[in-house]
Amino acid sequence: MISLITGFILDLLLGDPYRMPHPIRGIGWIIQKLERRLLREEDSPGTQLWKGAVLVAVVCLVSVLLPAVLLLLAYRIHRYLGMAVGAFMCYQLLATKCLKTESMKVYQALKAGDVEEARTAVSMIVGRDTAVLDETGITKAAVETVAENASDGSIAPLLYMALGGPLLGFFYKAVNTMDSMIGYKNEKYLYFGRTAARMDDILNYLPSRISGLLMTAAAYLLGMDGKNAWRIFRRDGRKHDSPNSAQTEAACAGALQIRLAGDAWYFGHKKEKPTIGDPIRPVCAEDIRLANRLLYGSAVLALLAVCAVGAGIRIMINI
């Protein structure tokens, strides 16, 4: 737990080190290499399906085995070195400050009146086409990304590391990274990426709902509309193709009293999507900053919760 707390603090203070190697980029590199070797358009759906499963197995194995060896070697040298390496791994697996930093670039561009720069900034953190977005669309895209990744990038890895240390955290991030790269329901990845997408759905099912609850609690504590966050969380939490993605988006939309989601463009094609939340007030750039307050509040509550549960378990064991 000490390594997790230290890693959490390091993430909030330092964020991702852009100029040094990052394990998630390494996982992404492995996925790209395996995809080039395995994916063939002429393969049958069944062949693409088992090849995608092979990719998932290899990536998960490598993503857990390498840090396991490194952690074991560190602990064999000295206990404190092992704890330090574990803390660094936990820090690398969390993305709370990075998410805030990247989304605030969108906020700053909008406040400066530079819509083109805001489009460029938001294109770095979303998968949709951004050229067609106006100021409202840009803001909504940034807020939705902060809300959704509050679970994927912060709370879910924290929960898995609390359960199984950095190794379980690496397993989670490997699956999550595969889903973000090959888990699309398009012609190219429909079968090849299905295993990755299904595993990500399973791993995020409980964390996404816990994240939605924590975000609702954070809304109350931060003086936002906690009552509306709870209402929209329950009403709109399933309004997404994924069973998990709308959970935190719904809580965030309710807390901010705005409407999110709706139709969006991906790879030149318009995708019809349901809306999340009620338009109690218009969306504005300030909502990006408020969404980040919810992100931080939810993450801190998650850390306090796992620490409390861990302390309770230790007390019960010692009784």
Rank of each mutant, 00 (worst) to 15 (best):
D200K: 06
D287G: 03
L221C: 04
Q48R: 14
V146N: 01
H240Y: 12
K111N: 11
I319T: 13
R314V: 15
Q257P: 02
Y266S: 05
M316T: 15
V106L: 08
F88P: 01
A217K: 05
K239F: 11
K227D: 04
A131V: 11
Y172S: 13
T136F: 05
G169D: 12
G254C: 09
R25V: 14
L163A: 13
Y160K: 06
N176H: 14
A246Y: 03
Q247T: 13
G165K: 06
L72W: 08
G137T: 00
L167V: 13
F8L: 04
I27M: 10
A229P: 00
A142T: 04
S151V: 02
F88V: 13
V62L: 11
D263H: 14
E249Y: 13
V300Y: 08
Y91A: 06
G86T: 04
K239Y: 10
A150T: 14
L94E: 01
M83F: 14
S298V: 06
L73E: 09
R36C: 13
A197M: 05
V126E: 01
S151I: 03
P45L: 12
L65I: 11
S242V: 13
V85H: 01
D179T: 13
M181N: 09
I5R: 00
G46Y: 07
A156T: 06
A250C: 06
D16H: 09
A162W: 07
G7A: 08
Y184P: 01
E187V: 15
L14W: 14
V59T: 04
P157W: 08
A217W: 05
Y220P: 00
Y296K: 15
E102Y: 11
I313S: 12
A53N: 03
H240V: 08
R231Q: 08
E42T: 15
K140Y: 03
A229L: 01
F8W: 03
A229M: 02
A150E: 04
M224D: 00
L133I: 00
D134Q: 09
V85Y: 04
I2W: 07
T130G: 01
D263W: 12
A141C: 06
A74S: 09
K33N: 06
T136D: 07
L55G: 01
C60R: 10
W29H: 15
E42V: 14
R79P: 03
G312I: 08
A253S: 10
S103P: 10
R234P: 00
K97N: 02
A109V: 07
R19T: 11
R128I: 02
S3Y: 00
V306T: 06
M20V: 14
Q247S: 14
G165T: 07
S298F: 02
K100G: 07
